[in-house]
């Protein structure tokens, strides 16, 4: 239980060879504690997805070491230590909502009764109990994304990996989904690695926000949102968006993103959008 959820040490990832070589990640060190919510933020192409895919063992690093709960990334994937959700919901269109959520359970040999019980629980959790028998094309984008999150949670993983899961949603749906994610995380106690483009989203959801910059992709700074006076991520409520600490953290993240030296205090009270 003392092993951190994610530990990355000296991770490099280089795509291509020679002239076309792209250094997607350069010397990345990152630790995500058990139960901690960490967001990755940065301009397009800075290697956020690449880092997440390395943790998920969907891709292999060029050098460096990644462990998930003390195991190699590969072993963690095989042991189903994490659940994953992408920008595209990735639901199988020929399966019903319930069929999609139970898929990982089914593939790992969980019996039918147990599956039914778990699916009902998860549908309740994401508020889609009435849609168990619908097909994905009958749902709105936000509902599809909630199904995808339920599927990621199906095996009660202690780690959730999410790559811009709300990226395709409108602002209103997005805030509602953020509130729901906070609630879900509080209920499951899972650690989360969350990729986003939105500063307020990162700050609202996270214990720590990791700011990255491109060419080569690297970590330029980490903002500890709790140090700005916010409660731990899992205990937040919608009102946290109006707290002073929230704006302070937003300002810090923004100045890190723009590469200007720390001017956190002056950022207080600015518009967050």
């Amino acid at each position: 239980m003392n092993d951190p959820a994610i530990q990355a040490r000296g991770v490099h990832r280089v795509f291509g060879k020679g002239r076309k070589q792209v250094i997607a990640l350069s010397d990345v060190d990152l630790t995500v504690a058990d139960g901690e919510f960490v967001s990755l933020i940065g301009p397009s192409g800075c290697g956020k997805s690449t880092l997440l895919r390395l943790v998920a063992d969907l891709d292999a690093s060029t050098s460096g070491e990644i462990t998930v709960f003390g195991k190699t990334a590969r072993q963690a994937r095989i042991d189903q230590e994490y659940g994953i959700a992408f920008q595209q919901s990735g639901l199988l269109p020929w399966r019903t909502v319930a069929g999609n959520i139970e898929l990982p359970l089914k593939l790992h040999g969980v019996n039918a009764d147990e599956r039914r019980r778990r699916v009902a629980e998860l549908l309740e959790l994401v508020g889609l109990s009435d849609f168990a028998k619908s097909h994905p094309d009958q749902l709105s984008g936000g509902m599809q994304q909630r199904v995808a999150i339920a599927r990621a949670l199906a095996e009660s993983p202690r780690l959730l990996l999410m790559d811009e899961p709300f990226g395709a949603l409108d602002e209103i749906t997005r805030e509602r989904m953020q509130n729901e994610l906070v609630r879900i995380c509080a209920e499951t106690g899972a650690a989360v690695l969350f990729v986003t483009h939105s500063i307020p989203e990162a700050v609202f959801l996270s214990d720590r926000v990791v700011v990255m910059s491109p060419r080569p992709g690297r970590i330029t700074g980490i903002v500890d949102v709790r140090a700005d006076g916010m409660v731990p991520a899992h205990d937040r409520s919608a009102g946290a968006r109006d707290e002073e600490g929230f704006f302070r953290a937003v300002g810090e993240v923004r100045s890190l993103l723009h590469g200007t030296p720390e001017t956190a205090v002056t950022a207080r009270g600015v518009d967050t959008r």
């Binding site: 895919r53 998920a56 063992d57 969907l58 994937r77 095989i78 042991d79 189903q80 994490y82 994953i84 992408f86 595209q88 990735g90 199988l92 898929l103 990982p104 593939l107 790992h108």
Partner: peptide
């Protein structure tokens, strides 16, 4: 799509079961 294939890999299933599923 790539997302679906990534998902199958994340489930830790091999070529054969990816084929069927």
């Amino acid at each position: 799509e790539a997302t679906h294939l990534d998902l199958m890999r994340s489930f830790g299933i091999g070529w054969w079961r990816t084929l069927l599923t």
